[in-house]
């Protein structure tokens, strides 16, 4: 990854400019051209280094959401995960090393629709779920600090 990409990641995981030409604002701050910023972002997107440039919503304020855990026989895991993924409100679906081995986040417009989606997921997969809604956040999501030095082997 080139230096500009790293700088963009370091500086703009938060505080993206809300100006008419935000990529120009970023370019000015980093001493490059707007085109270079746009090209770098497009490249990182196509390489899936970034998934997008935009807002991360607080789903507690935007609607309802919860973390959900499921315990699925190992040989069924891929199949069940795929079914879970087919629900539009599901994101961050991970296999984890535990008796509860499938962990995903479900979002919905409101609490009632959230509960309904979870029932639908249980019906579709045939497994019961354990919703663990967030009761309190102690951490503000500030993005992710990357140690580029330790990370040189990757490009």
């Amino acid at each position: 990854m080139n230096e500009l990409s790293q700088k963009l990641i370091d500086r703009y995981q938060k505080g993206f400019p809300l100006s008419s030409r935000p990529y120009l604002t970023m370019a000015d701050e980093l001493g490059v051209t707007e085109t270079q910023v746009l090209e770098s972002l497009a490249e990182m997107k196509s390489e899936k280094i970034i998934t997008r440039v935009g807002p991360v919503f607080d789903h507690r304020k935007a609607g309802a959401s919860t973390l959900v855990a499921m315990s699925v026989p190992q040989e069924q895991l891929n199949k069940v995960a795929e079914k879970v993924n087919s629900f539009a409100g599901v994101n961050h679906n991970y296999a984890r090393e535990h008796h509860y081995n499938l962990w995903f986040v479900v979002t919905a417009k409101n609490q009632k629709m959230l509960e309904q989606t979870i029932v639908e997921i249980e019906n579709a997969t045939g497994y019961s779920s354990m919703p663990l809604p967030m009761e309190r956040s102690f951490h503000i999501d500030l993005g992710f600090k990357i140690d580029w030095e330790k990370n040189k082997c990757h490009n």
């Binding site: 990854m1 995981q13 505080g15 809300l18 990182m44 991360v56 304020k61 990357i146 990757h154």
Partner: peptide, 24 residues
């Protein structure tokens, strides 16, 4: 968008990084 930012509806606004793809 500025309102949403100020009210906290938007937690953060910027590049959303795929941790795995940067070596984490």
């Amino acid at each position: 968008l500025q309102d949403w930012n100020d009210s906290g509806l938007i937690k953060r606004f910027g590049l959303v990084v795929n941790h795995r793809r940067v070596g984490y």
